[in-house]
Design a protein around this nucleic acid. Structure first.
Lengths: 342, 342
DNA sequence: CTGAAAGCGCTTACAG
DNA sequence: CTGAAAGCGCTTACAG
């Protein structure tokens, strides 16, 4: 099949290339009969515009805004680093990425920040969202103003965001439960549960997914009430030490949030590293070492590099009015054991 | 930092843009002092060429050849489908992908096919390789002729291929062993081992990785000698049924190759689906259903879509003389359990 | 509402 | 060995 250019279409439709461009990009000011003629020509030639040429001709920068929480955890630090790397890399392709930091827990502040963005300032926004009514409203308003919005890592399900670049946290929790149940085959006892904050939707969802599966499928395991570590290692260590003291029959720990190094330390200091199954989230320098040592038994992971690249790709595709490859943008729930660590 | 164009560099170096282009793309015929001047100007301006413009100007098609085994397994069928999809998608970006089928086991035929390819016909070749001396030679010769070679799914480690788009199969086998050992906690018994063919390097590597870890870390498990299913379901079913009959103490099965549906059938017919831990490779319609039913306990997977897209990206980057994002091209060893299936 | 022409930032023959 | 000019396939003001 030969490749046709916009010139070929223009000739066939008996109009100029400018008009072809107008109907191709849904620009206003073309009479209906002209539109029809052009569309017929496009169809007849099975014309596909050349994206490369279009991008060169537009010669304009894509401006994307990333709104990230002040990095508290090592995971968020990785997200920041990946955004910086993408910004660096994409600058050679005329993409300008700017980053703003915001307090994770302040929905009103996040909403205000979104409200201040106009279509003149940015073509797209990616944000680590907070599931809060004001944020949902702000996302919808921003979308209505013509700015593409992608949620990153943490979603706002009811909103009109274009895309969510992150994992299904409920499935992640269920996956953790199945690993826990399998690794504790034949044993009965109690399982400790840690979360960073019960105000974060992703943590809650993991917790619920985990509890649900354990309750239904592993009746020999009793899950203790969740403890809030505030994603802090020192606090995590204290709480884990206390947990070990209070529950001699403890055989498993699942941490849906941060502070994993503290829990690792508590397990190792108590000499219980090997006999307690510990499942944590996110590969970091510390967690990977603990996994290799055997203190952590499995890590559930989402790939921050993939998430950030995916957010950028989706925003670019939207700006170019081009399709995305859905399969490529699905963020995996990775399970890492010692031998398949990246 | 302002964006400079090739014009800016030309002005600065006091030469024409044609000369800048020559040194930028390492074309011959520029005197050393001129090269030096141009390089200085590039450095001083921190000039980064615009890939988009370059691709448009080249106005030439990229031609990539994919050499795939006649699809015997469902996995290979997926690889074929993904290549077709990529061909379709990339045709809008001036990339012409052609596919040739070849017999997997015939190293000489594969080598002959590679030998017939010239730099005039193709910019790059991706092949599911066979670890055979003739193939290695052919890959090296092809590379020397200026054609970029990427191995896909199955590698030829000693060769000069540009890149391998696939997983580390030895790690995959070790990962399977650890899952098996963990899932069989507290039990002792025998574990059956199936491979498609012992002539395939990936199968052997998985097998060795598995045996090694079980021997070292799970002394209560005895791995039986490997059986060759030839990736055939009917044969797999027969062999699994025989295995169940011969070994009443069988508690686990690891299948490194194809033919999984046959093994699933044997387990279910024998009523042993639930009490035998079965670990298989590759998510397919059949294996995913068996995983959900609980007959399969975990699937080790490599993502064919990712592998094919990665091969294409690496070949394109080479043709454009552009960098790749290493992290993005690493193929994961996926572990799937019921809840994190894609 | 429509078109002619310049331009996006490179690469490619063709001269010299 | 080096340069002037045309061209890649679109988009963008500017006229009319």
């Amino acid at each position: 099949m030969a490749k046709f250019t916009i010139q070929d279409v223009a000739r066939r439709a008996g109009v100029s290339v400018a008009t072809i461009d107008r109907v191709l990009n849904h620009r206003p000011g073309v009479r209906a009969p002209t539109v029809a003629k052009v569309e017929a020509a496009i169809r007849e030639l099975n014309y596909q515009p050349d994206r490369i040429a279009a991008r060169l001709a537009r010669a304009r920068e894509y401006r994307f805004h990333f709104i990230l929480p002040v990095s508290t955890s090592e995971f968020m630090t990785r997200i920041h680093a990946e955004v910086e790397e993408a910004a660096q890399r994409m600058s050679a392709e005329r993409v300008a990425i700017t980053v703003t930091n915001v307090d994770v827990f302040d929905g009103e502040a996040l909403a205000a920040m979104l409200d201040a963005i106009t279509a003149e300032q940015a073509d797209g926004v990616a944000l680590v969202a907070l599931d809060h009514p004001a944020v949902r409203e702000a996302i919808n308003a921003l979308t209505a103003r013509g700015v593409a919005v992608v949620t990153l890592v943490s979603d706002v399900p009811g909103s009109k965001r274009l895309h969510y670049a992150g994992i299904d946290n409920s499935s992640a929790g269920r996956t953790a439960a199945n690993l826990m149940g399998r690794f504790l085959r034949g044993l009965s006892g109690t399982v400790g549960l840690f979360a960073g904050s019960l105000a974060l939707r992703d943590h809650i969802e993991r917790q619920f997914g985990f509890e649900q599966v354990v309750a239904h499928e592993y009746p020999d395991l009793a899950v203790l009430p969740v403890r809030e570590s505030r994603d802090d290692s020192a606090r995590g260590e204290e709480m884990a030490a206390q947990l070990l003291k209070d529950h001699p029959d403890l055989i498993g720990i699942y941490n849906v949030g941060g502070g994993t190094p503290g829990i690792v330390a508590a397990l190792e200091k108590a000499g219980r590293a090997k006999d307690i199954v510990f499942i944590a989230h996110e590969v970091t320098d510390a967690s990977r070492r603990a996994l290799i040592r055997g203190t952590i038994d499995a890590i559930i992971n989402q790939d921050p590099g993939h998430e950030v690249r995916s957010a950028v790709r989706v925003l670019m595709a939207k700006a170019d009015n081009a399709p995305v490859i859905a399969e490529q943008e699905r963020i995996r729930i990775d399970i890492f054991m010692r031998d398949n660590l990246p």
